[in-house]
């Protein structure tokens, strides 16, 4: 069996052996429901779409996803199992991807369990399910980007708390540079191209266009490149750590 899959499977078991996965899923579902129905007013709006559901995801993920990813490498370093793992006939890249995939599956499972909200809007009206699918895909990609950032920060330290905080700060930054209140602040004095250029680095910009149902390859590419860049940085950090 492919070592990447072997590692991913072990990690996934690890998530469910500890309460991490369950706590994440339950809290994610509770908060998602709260935001969607109480703050988003899904029913009151009288529109058959999931905009109030997806709008909150960048913020919801901001704290929950780093909590899933924070143990990814810091735990290996703390326990010393990293020495075991990297002296196996496994490339660091296979280990990095395997661990990342496992954590992504955990978030994917949580996201999949929000299916009742899809059923609700379909029961009440006739939404564009293509847009809903795009929203889910965008949400999953965004979670992947956050997770890759968390993987990177957890490779930096053996302390999970430090890893969590640094990941939240980076993800927060990725949100802010495209968050309308911040961009409108910039438009006051900066040229348009500069504002747009900065906003292009934000998950907000790309997530918003996907959740409108516009599956632009540029947006997908953005998330994939954040993932690729962060995982690559993870491998650099791990190599540097080993080299002393």
């Amino acid at each position: 069996m492919n070592p990447t899959l072997t590692i991913a499977r072990r990690e996934l078991k690890g998530y469910f052996a500890s309460p991490v996965a369950f706590v994440f899923i339950v809290i994610f579902l509770l908060l998602a429901a709260f935001f969607t129905f109480m703050l988003g007013g899904l029913f009151e709006r009288g529109e058959a779409n999931l905009l109030p559901f997806f709008t909150w995801h960048p913020w919801l993920y901001l704290f929950l996803v780093p909590a899933v990813g924070m143990r990814m490498w810091s735990e290996e370093r703390r326990l010393g199992t990293i020495e075991l793992l990297l002296t196996m006939p496994v490339t660091p890249w296979q280990a990095i991807v395997g661990k990342f995939l496992a954590s992504w599956v955990v978030v994917g499972i949580a996201l999949a369990l929000t299916f009742p909200v899809v059923m609700t809007v379909n029961y009440l009206g006739s939404p564009d399910n293509g847009v809903i699918f795009a929203g889910y895909l965008g949400s999953l990609l965004m979670a992947g980007a956050y997770l890759a950032v968390s993987a990177m920060t957890s490779a930096m330290t053996r302390n999970q708390v430090v890893s969590f905080i640094v990941a939240v700060v980076i993800c927060f930054f990725l949100i802010l540079v495209g968050y309308p209140p911040v961009t409108s602040l910039l438009t006051g004095w900066a040229p348009t191209w500069a504002v747009e250029g900065i906003a292009a680095f934000s998950v907000m910009t790309h997530f918003e266009s996907i959740q409108k149902g516009v599956l632009d390859s540029r947006d997908v590419l953005y998330f994939l490149s954040v993932i690729a860049f962060s995982l690559f940085t993870t491998s650099v950090i791990i190599r540097a750590h080993r080299a002393g």
């Binding site: 078991k13 690890g14 052996a17 500890s18 326990l79 010393g80 199992t81 075991l84």
Partner: peptide, 11 residues
């Protein structure tokens, strides 16, 4: 066998 014999505690 690394020093301090590490292993995955949750397995």
């Amino acid at each position: 066998l690394p020093e301090n014999a590490p292993s995955y505690a949750d397995m």
